[in-house]
Simulated scan of single mutants.
Amino acid sequence: MRDHESYFAPTEIYHPAVNLGRWRHALDSVSQAVEARAIALLIRRPGEASKDLQMLNSTCLKFVRSPWGVYYDLRLSRLQNPDWEFLSKQPTHQPTLDTLIGPPPAVLGKRADYAFLRKRLKIGTRLGVKLNSDKVWFDAMSIAFTESASHVPWSAIEETKFLLPHLSKDVEKGRTFVQLKSRYSAVLTALNRVKVGLAIALPSGDIIVENDETKRILA
């Protein structure tokens, strides 16, 4: 792990709090810092009808958009459910090797999803971690290393521990920001309906926020 990467990753991590589209860049910086091949962040929403969110680094994102990724999602991804369930019962911010999930390493390595990802993504050993202790939400991260890595380097585990508090805060701040953004949009929509314009401008005169009614008035 190189020094500049350990400083670069946290700065990238906080961008997704206000822009979910930045998660790929943040996870790319994390994968560089811990020298991992693939990273998947699972955000499990409350409610049976809610769909899980998965934020992925570039390697994973490219894979899930391919025909092989579609096949994996439809046929094999459910095999990971016990792994996430295992992580949900672990202490927060405690990196856990996949060999501790339950099945012996030899058996786990032959599991259909493991064998498929090893063939298509050259993924071998994995590290999992729960990000928070929230009783409602469940957030966890899976970090996968290359097939050639016989074990997870100790430096990678230490660097992961360093980055985990930042990741946890970012996920929590992101949830708060989504709620604030929803309320903000509702206010602007209500003002549009009663024909009231609202604008926020900088001292320079540049308008940084304006609703549709303001745009109509200024036009």
Rank of each mutant, 00 (worst) to 15 (best):
T99K: 04
V64H: 09
Q80L: 14
P105S: 05
V136Q: 11
F86M: 06
F63V: 09
Q94Y: 08
A140L: 06
Q32R: 15
M55W: 09
R216Q: 11
R22I: 00
M141R: 01
I200K: 06
I217P: 01
L97M: 11
I200F: 09
I157T: 12
P46C: 09
K173N: 15
D98L: 01
K215T: 09
Y7N: 08
R111G: 01
L218G: 00
P10T: 10
Q179R: 12
A36N: 02
R37Q: 13
T160D: 03
E158F: 04
F162G: 03
A112E: 14
I200Q: 10
G128R: 01
P46M: 03
E172Q: 14
T214Y: 13
E158P: 00
R37P: 00
D73R: 14
R126E: 03
Y114V: 14
P153I: 05
L202M: 13
A40P: 00
K173T: 06
L74Q: 15
R22V: 00
N81R: 14
I200N: 05
R126Y: 04
N57H: 08
Y14T: 11
H25W: 07
T146A: 13
V34G: 05
S204R: 08
R183K: 04
G197S: 15
S204P: 07
T176I: 11
V129Y: 05
E172A: 12
L42A: 07
A36E: 01
W23K: 08
L100G: 00
K130R: 15
P104G: 01
Q90A: 04
K181Q: 14
A115C: 08
P165W: 03
S155L: 11
G197K: 05
H166P: 06
A49N: 12
Y114M: 11
I208L: 07
P153D: 02
P105I: 04
R75L: 07
S6E: 10
A112F: 00
S142I: 14
D73Y: 05
L198E: 04
R118N: 13
A26C: 08
R24M: 14
A149Y: 10
F145V: 01
I39S: 06
H151D: 06
N19I: 00
T176H: 14
L163G: 05
L117F: 09
D206V: 12
T214V: 00
I208V: 15
